[in-house]
Design a protein around this nucleic acid. Structure first.
Lengths: 145, 145
DNA sequence: ATTATATCCCGGTTCTCCACCGGAGTTTAC
DNA sequence: GTAAACTCCGGTGGAGAACCGGGATATAAT
């Protein structure tokens, strides 16, 4: 539904990391930020979040940076947005436990809609996004010629 | 995905209006707010939004209030949340800012997920919610006996 | 006509999250 | 040991959510 800057930045960064996954050497924040036009200080926070979720590993010190913690075809978009968007540990819903029946019914429908959206995000991996992008680039090239 | 207070309040209020749809006389904000435990001054804003979207009609003055503008089985949850949550005055995609190819691919997947969620909300009407609630109440009664 | 009753419209407030910046500390390669 | 990178901490500005209040306006009943 809502595509926040956070999620898009995170996806772009992970896509960049996926591109260099074969190199087996870390990519620095600065490079990712420059390549994808992301404010570096902000990207740093997002990568820290992704690290805490185990999607990315970091190496400190000189020649350090970030690497994907798993192969690109094992990371789904669902995991990414769950990591970045939804650390809704506890919502401040004190009054929500006074659950009317209508409230519960509404919540169930909402949950169903959320699961439908998540099902879509689960069937796409980083690898899929890369391939989608590559074939798109191919298409653009064809039109250019 | 995210179930905001706004949407839940609006749904509860419309459910209340649907309950009294046969009466053909308006329900006041105060009554809805009292019945569904909604802050009345806030509910007023939401009903104003729903009115501007044509989901609800209002009658001013004494004996005034709100009535559903359409039959309960003609109002989908999709319309409701679109009215209340989304003032997404969507501009034509042609004038969408020229982003990177990866940005476009990401946006397409996001759109697909959003449409999947909206499809769920489209297949439920106010009438459906009422029936869901009624059968739920029936169930609770059975357990109570 | 006047009045009681309701919506309508204009604000303001508090709070949280987003997007982002800066500094000080820590780890590591060289 | 120094430079290069991450790590942690806090802070800012803006937007929206979730409210509250006052006054203007419309309408039914007297």
């Amino acid at each position: 539904m809502e595509l926040s800057c956070k999620s898009e930045y995170a996806l772009l960064a992970l896509l960049e990391l996926a591109d260099h996954y074969r190199d087996n050497e870390p990519l620095q924040i600065r490079q990712i930020a420059a390549e994808q036009k992301i404010p570096d200080r902000y990207l740093e926070q997002l990568l820290a979040t992704l690290r805490r979720s185990g999607l990315v590993r970091s190496q400190r010190g000189a020649k350090g940076g970030y690497i994907l913690a798993q192969e690109p075809w094992k990371i789904t978009l669902s995991e990414i947005v769950a990591s970045i968007e939804g650390t809704d540990a506890q919502s401040p819903d004190v009054y929500r436990d006074a659950k009317s029946i209508e409230g519960m019914v509404i919540r169930e429908v909402w949950q169903e809609a959320g699961q439908a959206a998540d099902a879509i995000l689960q069937k796409y991996t980083l690898q899929d996004l890369m391939e989608k992008r590559n074939s798109r680039q191919q298409l653009d090239l064809m039109y250019y010629i």
